[in-house]
């Protein structure tokens, strides 16, 4: 795998100021780090908050925590779908195919399906309390499954993804500093957008819960 060079391709513009690193087949799409990769990081953070509320629900049995957990998990699912879609498009123009048998793609898809199962599970209950308790437990299970699927298994083999294969803790040079400058704020921004979506969802769920109870 070639490293980063400052050598731009023939058709790349080279403006003054901040310059992005050039890497063989990535070209300008190295900027997808701020969107595609940051989406997955934000998704993971949203699922983490969903897990937190699921545990709190099991400890306190307060209905609010169940609704928060649902709202955050659903925002995470949206981010996951967008991550798959942006990744697929990028793969078409980088690897030449909408879908490859890359280990990371397949494992991420399995993780996605587990969370789809969460939504289906929720909609299959009529008893409110049973629904809340079972989906809280399922939420914990889904998150525990997410960690090996996304963070462990892809690292055991080689992946087509840039900067992948092997232990990333030892790959400090994998991400250029000019990219970090935008990558980290992008994660925070997308996470905050996700929190806002989840909060809107929570308010809607809570309101509809109250309205239906008064009927």
């Amino acid at each position: 795998m070639e490293g980063f060079t400052d050598e731009p391709g023939v058709d790349l513009v080279k403006p003054e100021g901040i310059r992005f690193p050039y890497r063989s087949i990535l070209n300008e799409t190295i900027r997808n780090t701020f969107f595609h990769v940051a989406l997955w990081m934000a998704m993971f953070s949203l699922y983490l908050v969903g897990l937190y509320h699921a545990i709190l629900y099991l400890r306190t049995s307060r209905k609010d925590h169940d609704l928060w957990s649902e709202a955050y998990n659903k925002a995470g699912i949206l981010f996951g779908i967008m991550g798959i879609a942006t990744g697929s498009l990028w793969a078409r123009y980088t690897w030449g195919s909408w879908w490859t048998n890359d280990i990371k793609l397949n494992m991420a898809t399995i993780a996605m399906f587990i969370y789809f199962g969460y939504v289906i599970l929720r909609s299959s209950f009529t008893d409110e309390e049973k629904k809340a308790r079972v989906s809280a437990v399922f939420s914990i299970f889904a998150f525990v499954a997410l960690i090996p699927l996304v963070f462990v298994i892809p690292r055991l083999t080689d992946s087509l993804h840039p900067g992948n294969g092997g232990n990333p803790a030892l790959g400090g040079e994998d991400l250029d500093h000019t990219l970090r400058l935008f990558f980290y704020p992008s994660i925070i921004a997308l996470f905050l957008i996700g929190c806002w979506l989840a909060q809107l969802k929570f308010r809607l769920l809570k309101l509809s819960d109250r309205v239906l109870k008064n009927r």
Binding site: V13, N32, A85
Partner: peptide, 24 residues
């Protein structure tokens, strides 16, 4: 693929925007 495939990044941003818009 023109200009260093920058428009595939633009298309990615469009997907993100569309996803958020559809959700809202």
């Amino acid at each position: 693929r023109s200009t260093g495939k920058i428009y595939s990044v633009v298309a990615g941003i469009v997907i993100v925007f569309a996803g958020l818009a559809i959700y809202l």
